[in-house]
Every structure is written in structure tokens, then in C-alpha cells.
């Protein structure tokens, strides 16, 4: 090797200084008072425009106003969220790199055999930001006006009623598996790449029903092309107040919603997590955030970080049971 050029030596010195500086800041970050002292990175497991990206950008904008530090949204789509999960789990646990955590984080614990980042236990929850109901809708020509009538129809023609769901391992997909297991009906379960083509197929009538997140189905429910039979949440959705919940429709133990929130690497110090939780809760309570998020079909959540940890653990357990019971083979 030749001797380093002056420029290179200079760069090395600079790198060392930067490293020292970042270590110094990270060390000081444990005191919540001066947190955050640097830009915050929100890693979204989605392309620009995907639902976690929209959440991150909306919340990020108001968080920026509040903490007077830039909030940068970084898109790491793909690999069923695992690429983003891995990146954040391995980031410095200083509260400056956060994950937009979605149901996929909990579901992947059981959907994948061996996650290099250790699954959902590799994260500490900061706050649950939103929840969104799942909805069972049928094409308006299907002669079923309630969940009971739909199940009767499916029992009369076993395996013939086609239900479209978004990709394997999404909440809609698992919910359809769960529905068959709970009620014993046999449906023709057809998987699409995402919610939009599944909904389109239900609109054309080639499939009779679709189980998806409420937001993308909402315009078609309002136009009358699709008929909503039930929402999956414990309470009715303000967007479609006339649609009963699954519990009201007679489905026992069939209450769930999809959620999104923010999580940090597991080793992040508690004072930093508390400071972040306070900032996020203040942002989520801001009416401007609420208006922007409600327009996306999200129900704004908020709450303690312990509650979010509990939700992630409960979802991981619930969907784990479904995945095993429905005999969905984990991916290596």
C-alpha cells in the first residue's frame, strides 16, 4: 500500500472526530431534557405513498415543529417489512432511529422461521399512533345482507364463495383464515398482491367478497358497489356507523384491528423512550394531526409505550395462533 495522501489523512481525522462527536451526543441522549439534539430518522417499511409512509410524513411534519429538529422519513420497502425491521433493530439504541411499526412486525414473528433481528422482541414500543378497522364486504349483487346470511350462503355452497384478500400474512389474509376456522365454513380463498386488485375483483363480481382494511374499500361502500357486512373492531367505525361490529354480527372472539405506531431498538434507554412518548402523544393530540390522519381512514390512537408493547405482544400471540391453526407454513 502507498502512503495515505494528505486528503485521505484529513478525511480519516474528520471521520474520527465525527465518530467521537456522535458518541458524545449518544451518551448525552440518556438525559431526556436535551433530547432530541439531532435529526430523527423514521424508517418506513413502505415505498413513498404507502400507508406507513403517509403516517410517518404526517406525524413527522408536526413532530419537527415540536422538537425543532429535522424529522427525516426514510423508505425501506420490501421483504414483508423485514428490511426496515432489520435496519432499525441494528441501529444505535439512542432514540434517533425509529421504526414505523405495523402489524407485520407482530405477524412476522410467526410467519418467518428465523428472523435475524430477533422479531418483535428486538424493539421497544414508543407509541401506538393509529388503528384501522378491517372490513368484510361483498359485491352488491351477492344475496347476503349480514354476516349470518353470508355464512349460510357459504354453507349452502361449500368452497364456492370466493373471498379475495391482500397478500399472504396480511391481517385481511389471516382474518379470512381465522373466519373459516371459527365458523367451519369453507370459502374459496384467493390471494392478491395487495388490497387494490382484490377490491377490483370484488367490484367486477368475479369474487363475491373481500376482507381488507376499511380505507381503500370505503369509496366503493359509499358508492353502493360493495356492501359492508361487518367491521372487525370492538366499536363501530365513525366512517361507516351503520355497519355492525363482528361481535354484534355474532362472531365470537373475532375482534381485532390493524395498527401502526413507532418503535425503537430494544436497548434504547427508558428516559429517551419516555421523552419520545411524550412528544408523539402531544403531536397525536394536535387537532391538525387528527384531521390529516382521519382523512386517510386512520383512527388516531396514542397512549403509553407500555400499552403499545402490550398490543404488539398480544397481536403476535393472536396471529401466531391463527398462523399455526390455519397451517400457514413459516418462511425460512
Amino acid at each position: 500500500m502507498h502512503t495515505p495522501s494528505p486528503l485521505r489523512r484529513h478525511l480519516r481525522g474528520l471521520a474520527a472526530a465525527l465518530l467521537a462527536a456522535s458518541l458524545g451526543v449518544a451518551g448525552g441522549a440518556a438525559t431526556a431534557a436535551d433530547f432530541p439534539a439531532r435529526p430523527i430518522r423514521l424508517v418506513a417499511p413502505a415505498a413513498p405513498g404507502g400507508s406507513p409512509d403517509i403516517l410517518a410524513r404526517t406525524v413527522g411534519q408536526f413532530l419537527n415543529e415540536r422538537v425543532k429538529q429535522p424529522v427525516v422519513v426514510e423508505n425501506k420497502p420490501g421483504g414483508a417489512g423485514n428490511i426496515a425491521h432489520e435496519l432499525v433493530a441494528r441501529a444505535a439504541p439512542d432514540g434517533y432511529t425509529l421504526l414505523v411499526a405495523t402489524d407485520q412486525l407482530a405477524i412476522n414473528d410467526s410467519l418467518f422461521h428465523d428472523l435475524s433481528y430477533g422479531g418483535s422482541r428486538g424493539f421497544a414500543g414508543v407509541v401506538q399512533a393509529i388503528s384501522a378497522p378491517q372490513v368484510l364486504v361483498v359485491n352488491s349483487t351477492v344475496p347476503a345482507r349480514s354476516v349470518a346470511e353470508f355464512l349460510d350462503l357459504a354453507r349452502a355452497r361449500p368452497g364456492e364463495i370466493a373471498v379475495a384478500t391482500p397478500a399472504v400474512g396480511t391481517v385481511g389474509h389471516l382474518a379470512t383464515a381465522l373466519l373459516q376456522r371459527r365458523t367451519g365454513v369453507r370459502l374459496n380463498h384467493i390471494v392478491y398482491k395487495s388490497a387494490q386488485p382484490a377490491i377490483a375483483e370484488a367490484l367486477s363480481g368475479r369474487v363475491q367478497a373481500v376482507f381488507v382494511t376499511l380505507a381503500p374499500a370505503l369509496p366503493h361502500i359509499q358508492s353502493g358497489a360493495l356492501r359492508a357486512l361487518a367491521v372487525s373492531t370492538a366499536e363501530r367505525s365513525p366512517a361507516v356507523p351503520e355497519v355492525p361490529t363482528t361481535a354484534e354480527a355474532g362472531l365470537k372472539d373475532f375482534t381485532f384491528s390493524s395498527w401502526q405506531g413507532f418503535s425503537a431498538p430494544a436497548a434504547t434507554p427508558a428516559p429517551v423512550l419516555d421523552a419520545l412518548n411524550a412528544h408523539f402523544n402531544a403531536v397525536l393530540a394536535d387537532p391538525r394531526t387528527r384531521t390529516a390522519l382521519t382523512a386517510q381512514g386512520f383512527d388516531v390512537a396514542g397512549g403509553t409505550r407500555q400499552a403499545f408493547d402490550g398490543l404488539v405482544a398480544a397481536s403476535a400471540a393472536q396471529w401466531g395462533d391463527v398462523i399455526r391453526a390455519a397451517d400457514i407454513k413459516p418462511v425460512d
Binding site: A47, P48, G49, G50, S51, D53, I54, R57, Q196, P197, I199, A200, L203, A215, P216, L218, P219, H220, Q222, S223, A225, A292, A295, Q296, G297
Partner: peptide, 30 residues
């Protein structure tokens, strides 16, 4: 199809759907 059914055909169209949603427009028949 993008505006009336909300179905993106290409990666570019998928980005457009995302952009519309960010601006509070849910692509669909309405």
C-alpha cells in the same frame, strides 16, 4: 382504471396513487 377503480398498473401509477392519498384523494369511482 387508476382514477375510477384505484388500481395502479405500473410502479409509476402506484406512486401516483400514493401521492393522491397523501393529498387526501382516495382514488375510486367517486
Amino acid at each position: 382504471p387508476l382514477l375510477t377503480l384505484g388500481i395502479p398498473e405500473t410502479p409509476v401509477m402506484a406512486l401516483m396513487v400514493g401521492a393522491m392519498m397523501i393529498h387526501g384523494i382516495q382514488p375510486g369511482p367517486q
